[in-house]
Simulated assay, not measured.
Amino acid sequence: MKIFISSLIGGFEPFRAAARSAVTALKHEAVMAEDFPAQPNSPQIACLQGVRSADLVVLILGERYGSVQGTSNVSPTHEEFLEARDSRPVFVFVQEGITRDAQQTKFVTEVQGWQHGYFRGGFTTPEQLRDLVTGAIHEYQLAHATAPLDTGALKQSSIALLPREGRGNTIQSPVLYLAIAGGPLQNILRPAELEAPALASDLHQRALFTEPLLFDRSKGVESDIDGAALVLEQDGGSRIQLDEQGGILLRLPLEDRRPRGQHGFGGSFAIIEETVVRQLSAGIAYAAWLFERIDATQKLTHVALSARINASEHLGWRTQAEDDAQPNSGSMGFGGNEEKPPVTVSCPRAALRFDAMRLSEDLMVPLRRQRKSR
């Protein structure tokens, strides 16, 4: 890959050298302004062409913003970011323990608030930056590798983890089921490892105390072995199931907990779209951690995710804004007799960390279509 390294040059040479070292150590080509040969174009055009030629961009932000260019009204680094952000991945690294000038502070805030970027963390030394860049590029490669296995079979494995959809028109609190199967399919945990108290304790602690939380801290948690699976569950709330093949099944509540009138579903007549995305994101983040906990050597290289919503067939679908505008009324569905198939996606395992928001949206949109078509 060609990787463009974007940063202020003057006074930042050790950090740029560290980034170059990371890129070349992984056998990629570093594209850097100081390497450009003499050419008729301006340095501004040469750098933007360098960005366009690259597969991804490493953006390194320190204390100084740099000189503003008259044609763009931003610094060269800022212009390179604007050129790259809508067309290729951008890894962002921010220097810590320094005092930034006002323009750089504003620029850092803009970049960190950009939802589609890859913010990979802060650094203080060139050595820390080199390690961060190395890790980010390596994980990106894993996340975008071609799957060497039967993704259809992997999807079926994730679907098999799901319980059947509740039928009928009985009103119930809506829940999201998210199943994640890892492949190539194989046993990851021995029976004794699955039953080890330390494993249940780690799953419990992660779900209860690490954001995004899966468990409600006001409720107790029951832990047990159900068949060949470890289960942690809160009464009427979240449930975590893990089997010997590393298959994960999560039950995540979708009710709106805000008090609003006396009608059901926690004060809403609908499933709230943002709640679905939030719970999907939380579940995916938990699964990414759990795979690292049980399979640190990455025997499982790919995953398939399946999702299903179990709720009253009369329950509608709304965005949060729509629900806030009319909190005490709603459009109720008429229900249907056919069972909707689960929504599935497959991807390299590293995508659970790199592309969690995209995966959440890829699952949410078909779920929304199913609910609105009832």
Rank of each mutant, 00 (worst) to 15 (best):
R217I: 03
I225H: 11
A145N: 07
I171N: 09
S238V: 04
V231F: 09
G236E: 08
I248T: 07
L232W: 11
G237Q: 08
I171L: 09
L214V: 13
R251G: 00
I159H: 00
D235N: 06
R260H: 12
I171W: 12
T146Q: 14
E244Y: 07
L208I: 05
L185W: 05
S158L: 02
G183A: 12
V221R: 03
A192E: 13
L213H: 10
R251T: 15
A198Q: 13
R217Q: 09
P174N: 04
L249I: 03
A192C: 06
L162M: 05
Q245A: 15
A147R: 13
A229M: 09
A153G: 08
P259L: 08
L189D: 07
I248A: 06
A229W: 04
R167L: 04
A179H: 07
L254D: 08
D243Y: 09
I240G: 02
L154R: 04
N169G: 14
A153L: 13
F265S: 01
R217G: 01
K155H: 08
E165L: 12
A207K: 03
D243H: 02
I171S: 10
L208A: 09
A207F: 04
D224I: 06
V175Q: 07
R251C: 14
L189A: 03
G237S: 11
P184W: 06
G166R: 01
T151W: 11
P197R: 03
Q186K: 07
V221E: 03
T146Y: 11
L178Y: 04
A200T: 02
E244A: 13
G261W: 01
H263D: 08
L176T: 01
P174T: 08
L249S: 04
G237L: 08
L194V: 10
G247H: 11
H204R: 12
L161H: 04
V231M: 10
P184V: 02
E222V: 13
S223H: 03
N169P: 00
L230A: 08
I240S: 06
L161I: 04
Q186R: 11
S158H: 10
T146W: 12
E211P: 12
D216E: 10
R167T: 13
L250H: 02
E165K: 15
L214K: 06
L208C: 00
R260Q: 14
E195H: 10
A229K: 14
I240D: 02
L199E: 02
D256M: 14
G220V: 05
N187M: 11
I225N: 12
L162G: 10
A228H: 13
I180Y: 03
T170H: 01
S238I: 00
S158C: 04
E244K: 08
L162H: 10
P174R: 06
R258L: 06
G168Y: 02
Q245M: 13
K219E: 04
D224Y: 14
A192V: 15
